[in-house]
Amino acid sequence: MRAYNFCAGPAALPTAVLEKAQQELLDWQGKGLSIMEMSHRSKDYVAVAEKAEADLRELMNIPENYQVLFLQGGASLQFSAIPMNLLGKNSKADYIHTGIWSEKALKEAQRYGDINVIEAGTSIDGKLAIKNQSEWNLSQDAAYVHYAENETIGGIQFADIPDVNVPLVSDLSSSILSAPLDVSKFGLIYAGAQKNIGPAGLTIVIVRDDLLDQSRSDIPSILKYSAQAKNGSMVNTPATYAWYLSGLVFEWLLEQGGVDAIHQVNLEKAKLLYGYIDSSDFYNNPIAVPNRSIMNVPFTLADEALEKLFLQEAEENHLLNLAGHRSVGGMRASIYNAVPLEGVQALVNFMDTFVQKHG
């Protein structure tokens, strides 16, 4: 029996994807070898890579004037790659600070340019929230504005896409493909794969063509978007198996009806879990309703001393990885695309039973 996995990342993958990968593990499509053993420049592998890109473009309606790059190093490497690629002609950028991941990004960017930090976090009736854009002190001459659309650790998400007059850059690691998105509103989108795309080891970068000539002269070639775009994301050997598995996830998403369809499921999952938390005196979510993440749901127990028991009994009920991030504690359920509605129903049933026993 497969358990329900609520890990924030590396996260759950669709069972159908894992089963197909298992079937093809030793002999990919009758070729007599695993795709892990195949040259990344072979005709067969290039076809796999190109199909993955085409499927992602279809899922996200990515315009033709954007490059889609399949890179390595995780989203964290992009914290450095982005300023090195975009601050070559203008060394100023705005970074919106809403949590741990946006803070990590801005600290790396400060190594390369003049960074204006916009403290956008606030509190509404004791709940964490994001300030209205009218309260932000945006620069007039920034090369770009960066924000983390969904803070995986804090469970706080932007209700709307910021409206800015310069290229908008967003970390979408924990929300990509979870809801429809107008890619044309962004200059650059990036996302670590290990939450909603595929296994760890791959990072997606979607960058508008006009931003490919903005890099610093001292940027390493492996980090340079224009070089990666010119070489089909193969300046060096890419993460071939992660790329292949991500392609299987894209196929699975298309079979589910695409992003619009999976978004409706995600809304139903979030409504069920938040609804139960809000109806309980035992559980609490610390985020203001407009900024609640539909992917990462943190919650606390009325009695902190019961946390270890909660996690122990959850695991006994095949509900895994519910501990909150070590920096904030509490609990967190990450309900990404691959977590089925039945998994959230099982979690809510367990939470209710736990209250009856120990509340």
Rank of each mutant, 00 (worst) to 15 (best):
E313C: 00
G187W: 14
A302L: 10
A11C: 13
A109V: 13
Y112Q: 11
L347P: 03
Q67E: 15
G32K: 10
R216Q: 15
Q72C: 03
D182I: 11
D213C: 00
Q228T: 01
M331D: 05
K271D: 03
A193E: 04
G126L: 05
A52G: 09
I115M: 14
M84D: 10
D278C: 07
A3E: 02
P167I: 07
Y112W: 15
V235H: 07
V205E: 07
A109Y: 13
M36C: 01
K43S: 02
Q78N: 14
L311S: 04
T237A: 14
I277W: 06
L347T: 05
D260L: 08
P83G: 10
T15W: 10
L181C: 10
D141N: 14
G99Q: 12
E108Q: 13
V259Y: 02
Y147K: 06
Y283I: 11
L128P: 00
S174G: 13
I62T: 06
S279P: 12
D278G: 06
N266H: 11
L341S: 08
E315V: 05
N165P: 00
S246L: 03
A8F: 15
E119L: 09
N349F: 03
L211D: 04
V17S: 04
D278H: 12
I115H: 10
L172Q: 15
G113M: 09
V207K: 04
D303N: 13
S327M: 10
K127V: 02
I222F: 10
G73P: 00
D114F: 07
V249N: 13
G30W: 04
D218H: 11
E251K: 11
I82L: 15
Y336M: 04
F299A: 06
E313G: 01
N291H: 13
Y66S: 10
L212G: 03
M351V: 06
F70E: 06
M295Y: 03
K92A: 14
F282K: 10
N132Y: 08
A105R: 11
G258N: 05
M331N: 09
S280N: 08
S134D: 15
T15A: 12
S221M: 13
C7L: 00
N85C: 11
E315C: 03
N285P: 07
A314C: 04
V328K: 09
S102G: 13
Y283M: 09
N61I: 01
I115A: 08
S215W: 01
S173F: 08
S226N: 07
P238L: 08
L56T: 05
R216D: 12
L69D: 03
F158S: 05
D281C: 04
A75H: 14
L18G: 14
H146R: 02
L267C: 09
V164G: 12
A11V: 05
Q345N: 06
A191S: 15
G330M: 09
R111H: 13
L320I: 04
M84A: 13
A49S: 08
D44F: 00
K269F: 03
L253Y: 01
L106V: 15
M36G: 02
G99S: 13
Q264R: 08
A81Y: 14
I287C: 02
G192R: 05
V68G: 00
A142F: 07
G329I: 05
V48G: 01
S123P: 02
N349W: 01
A261H: 00
E58P: 00
D27H: 01
